[in-house]
Structures are given as structure tokens and as C-alpha cells.
Design a protein around this nucleic acid. Structure first.
Length: 484
DNA sequence: CGCAGAGGTAGGTGTAATGA
DNA sequence: TCATTACACCTACCTCTGCG
């Protein structure tokens, strides 16, 4: 564990302890007491405040300045600023109070509906195992170091860098990405963090964490039984009639149906030769040449479209599967869900997601992997040395070069085969046949916008390097199409 | 040992949209 | 307007863990 990570852990632990010490039975706590607690907590804010963020005080408590130094305009500005900070603090305290209430009662306050929706989207579009507390602490205390990090990333990495240092940089980079995503998704977060104290941060973290966990649970549940239905489409005669129900503890390597889906695509021939022997090898803990056989980097067969898969080309047919995002009714439709379909709209419709990102795909893959295995409680590790966290990272990494042909083809496929009918989405232009005038104008318009954005990016590039990850979709950044 | 909280599951309920 | 559909997500309940 890196030094910085230990510092985060210590801060997180400290936050938890400081919260637990004065904990009272929440149900018996009268509303007034809770209000008092929230407002009194704002004082402990001082402990965490950085030097760059002076403590705003009401004008009456500010030390008097020498009369000669007082500029009338400045004085007026100070009063305005202090009022503004007081106003923000008040609003924040109210919001945190509601969150604390929701945390305690498991209710959903209507005033926080947007926070609730965005929080549920975190697991789905940023990281299924995000620890909001760690990310927020990182952002609050390390945001100033971002520039230094980016300078360091920009310099040629020293070959003598230890793997620990590399891990540390990777972790920081991931935390930075998650923090920036949170800023995009959670309303007012940047402003709130500036004035938020330790306890408020903990309440917000718990609020986000509860919703991340629930969204993950709900999505897993909705996939659980659908998975069995999809098996009948494997195309292999022996696997076309799976049992209607396979209990969770009988999945994984305990039966051929789920085992074949978990088997690495590259090892399917070996699996088909003797499925029982293959399963035994995995469950006994693969050794020697087989040690890495089911490591996350050897992508399991369920991630492939078996009609396209080609042993000579490991990426062919990869990541073209069914959709969590457009609902089960869409899984067998050529262009995804129809625009006009009875029933409550699925996730992609609700959040206006009109394309996938590496992270939404990785999230879905991880959930499916878990639903196929025999574990009865959610864990990232599984028999045979498999690690779900690695699977997530490996899939995100597949898209690290957005210019690669595979990356473009895969995202194009998702655009046309799954998200083609999302309302309000730009319809992809037909690749064959003459373009209409509107098509030509649209292409010109897109090209002009792209050129303008590229120019703006290059202007900013000195002061601010772009995050390497693809943009996370959110309600605030809807309709961002991948650059392909 | 009891309590509280975290993390999980199953099943019921709510709801947005369609179409008669 | 109302029945139907197909989904999201809420609720109740469970187990496990940490703490006093």
C-alpha cells in the first residue's frame, strides 16, 4: 500500500472514528438535536481546512482592518462574499440533514431525487467499487496536486521506477478520474466540498455509497435469471437447452452451462474436449502452465459473440453482448429497443445514455461474471485466481487507444445495434447509398464542432492535460457521442 | 451478548408508456 | 379512459462483522 493511500486510509478511519464516538441511537434523536449536530459540526470544519481556503467569517467577527487600507469597494465585496458563503453553508447543511435522514431511515427525500439518480449512476458509469469517501477526501485534499501529477505523467517515465511507484500513479490516476466524474455528476459538489466539514463529508459519502451498492445489487438481480435464458442462444447444440433455473450455488464451475461461459474464449476447444476435467482443474486451483488460465486478461467466452469469434484474432467478436442498458426486451432486437415500446423505459432511456463507454461495458461484464459464478455473496475474487477488479481494469484498458480500429468498430456496433433508437439520439448516417442534404450538412457541422473543440483543447493543453478516460455520460453531459 | 451498520437477496410495488 | 406491458426500484429480511 502506498504512503498516500495509507494517509487516505488514516483520514477515512479518523473520519469514521470521529463519527462513531459521539453516535447516539439515531431513532431517538429528536429533529432539533440533529439540526444542532449538523450546525455544530460546521465548526469542526476548521480542522480540515487547507491554508488556501481561509475560514470565511461573518463580518462582525472579522478583525478590523487599518482604516487607510480599507477600500470601500473591497469592503463591500468582502461583505458580499461572507454573505454568499453563509448562504451556501445554510443550503449545504439543509441538504446534508436530508441525506443523514435518508441514510438513517432508508427513505428517499423528494428534494434529493436528482442526487439519488446520479448516485445510482456512479456504479454504472464510473466504477462499481468506488469508495466515495476515499474519492471525496482525495479530491478535497489532493486537488491542488493535480497539476504536479500531470507534469509527472507528462515527463518520460523512468525505467527504474518501481512497480510500487507505478501502482501508486495508476491508483492516483484512477482516483483523479473518479473524482472528476463525481464533480460532473453530483450537483454543486465542487462548491460544497470547499465548505464541507469532516462529518458532512462522511454523511455525503455514506449517502452515495448506499446508492452505489443498491444500484449494483439491483442490476445484478435483474441480470441473474436473464443469464440462463441467454444460454439457449449459445449456438452449440449441447448447450441449447439449459435448465429453466440454475440456483446460484450450482453455477460457476459446478455445471457445464455456466462453466462454458466462464471459460476463456481461447480455451474453449480444450473445455469442449473434456468439460469435467477442465472444471476440476480450475476448482483445484490451476498450477504450472495453467496458472494464469482464467486470469481476467484471458477474456471469458460470455464476452464474445460466438458467431464472430475467431481463434486467430482474440479481439474479434469481443464485447458484443446483450444489454443491461436497453432492457431485456431489447436483447434480441437488431437495433436495440424500439423507440415506442410499452412499459417503463430502461436505464439508458431514463438517463439519456445514447452510447456505451469502456466503463459501462466493464461494469456490465463484471456483473455478468458474478451472476455466472457460484458465489452466493458479492466478492471480486473467485476460484482459480480470477479477480473481477482486474476484469474491470482490463476492459477499460482495451479502450485506452480510441483511435484503434477495434475500438472504433466496437463502439460503432454498440451505437448501431443497441443504442440506435434512443430518443433524441443523432441517427448514424447510412454507410451505403447517397447522403441526403441534411446528412451532408450534419457531417459538416460535426466536423466544424470537432475542429473548434480540438483548437480549444490545444489552447488548454499547456495548463491542463485531458483525462485519458472517455467522458462519463451523465445527465449533465448527455448526447456526447464518441469520436468515431 | 446485544446492538448497529454494511452488504446482500427476493419479491412486491410503482410507474411511464402504448394501444384498444 | 383504462388495461396491459415492461421495466426500475423500494421494502423486508437475511447474514456477517465490529464494537462496547
Amino acid at each position: 500500500m502506498s504512503k498516500r493511500q495509507r494517509e487516505f486510509e488514516a483520514l477515512l478511519t479518523k473520519s469514521k472514528k470521529s463519527k462513531k464516538t459521539p453516535r447516539m441511537p439515531p431513532r431517538s434523536l429528536p429533529v432539533k438535536s440533529r439540526t444542532d449536530a449538523v450546525s455544530s459540526n460546521t465548526n469542526s470544519n476548521d480542522e480540515l481546512r487547507t491554508e488556501q481556503q481561509p475560514i470565511p467569517q461573518p463580518p462582525s467577527q472579522q478583525a478590523p482592518l487599518p482604516a487607510a487600507a480599507i477600500n470601500a469597494t473591497q469592503s463591500s465585496d468582502n461583505i458580499q462574499d461572507a454573505r454568499e458563503v453563509r448562504r451556501r453553508r445554510k443550503k449545504l447543511a439543509k441538504r446534508i440533514e436530508l441525506m443523514e435522514h435518508d441514510n438513517r431511515t432508508d427513505e428517499l427525500s423528494p428534494a434529493l431525487a436528482h442526487y439519488h439518480d446520479q448516485a445510482r449512476l456512479i456504479a454504472r458509469t464510473v466504477h462499481p467499487f468506488m469508495r466515495p469517501g476515499e474519492v471525496l477526501l482525495f479530491g478535497k485534499h489532493a486537488a491542488d496536486d493535480f497539476e504536479k501529477d500531470e507534469d509527472a505523467e507528462g515527463s518520460d517515465s523512468d525505467e527504474s521506477d518501481s512497480s510500487d511507484a507505478l501502482d501508486d500513479r495508476t491508483q492516483r490516476s484512477e482516483l483523479k478520474y473518479q473524482y472528476k466524474s463525481l464533480l460532473e455528476m453530483i450537483p454543486n459538489l465542487k462548491d460544497d466540498l470547499e465548505i464541507m466539514d469532516e462529518d458532512q463529508l462522511l454523511i455525503l459519502s455514506t449517502y452515495l455509497n448506499n446508492r452505489v451498492r443498491r444500484a449494483r445489487g439491483d442490476d445484478g438481480g435483474s441480470l441473474r435469471d436473464r443469464m440462463i435464458g441467454y444460454m439457449s442462444e449459445s449456438g452449440i447444440e449441447d448447450y441449447k437447452n439449459p435448465p429453466a433455473v440454475i440456483e446460484k450455488f450450482r453455477r460457476g464451475w459446478y455445471n457445464w452451462y455456466t462453466a462454458r461461459m466462464l471459460c476463456p474464449q481461447a480455451a474453449l476447444d480444450r473445455f469442449d474436449e473434456d468439460p469435467d476435467k477442465f472444471c476440476e482443474t480450475i476448482m483445484a486451483g490451476p498450477e504450472g502452465e495453467d496458472e494464469n488460465i482464467i486470469k481476467a486478461g484471458n477474456f471469458p467466452s460470455f464476452l464474445y459473440d460466438q458467431d464472430l469469434a475467431d481463434p486467430a484474432q482474440p479481439t474479434k467478436g469481443l464485447l458484443r453482448g446483450k444489454s443491461l442498458w436497453t432492457g431485456p426486451g431489447s436483447a434480441r432486437l437488431a437495433r436495440g429497443r424500439k423507440d415506442k415500446t410499452p412499459g417503463k423505459p430502461p436505464i439508458a432511456w431514463k438517463y439519456k445514455l445514447d452510447h456505451v463507454t469502456s466503463r459501462t461495458l466493464a461494469y456490465t461484464a463484471m456483473l455478468v461474471r458474478y451472476e455466472l459464478n457460484s458465489q452466493t455473496s458479492f466478492q471480486t475474487t473467485d476460484v482459480g485466481g480470477f479477480d473481477g477488479y482486474d476484469l474491470f481494469s482490463e476492459i477499460v484498458d482495451l479502450f485506452s487507444d480510441p483511435e484503434s480500429q477495434w475500438c472504433k468498430d466496437t463502439l460503432d456496433w454498440w451505437d448501431s445495434a443497441v443504442f440506435a433508437n434512443v430518443p433524441g439520439r443523432q441517427k448514424p448516417t447510412s454507410k451505403s447509398g447517397p447522403l441526403t442534404v441534411a446528412d451532408q450538412l450534419r457531417i459538416e457541422r460535426c466536423a466544424a464542432i470537432k475542429a473548434r473543440k480540438a483548437a480549444q483543447r490545444s489552447d488548454r493543453s499547456i495548463a491542463e492535460r485531458p483525462v485519458s478516460e472517455p467522458t462519463v455520460s451523465s445527465q449533465n453531459s448527455q448526447a456526447v457521442l464518441p469520436d468515431n
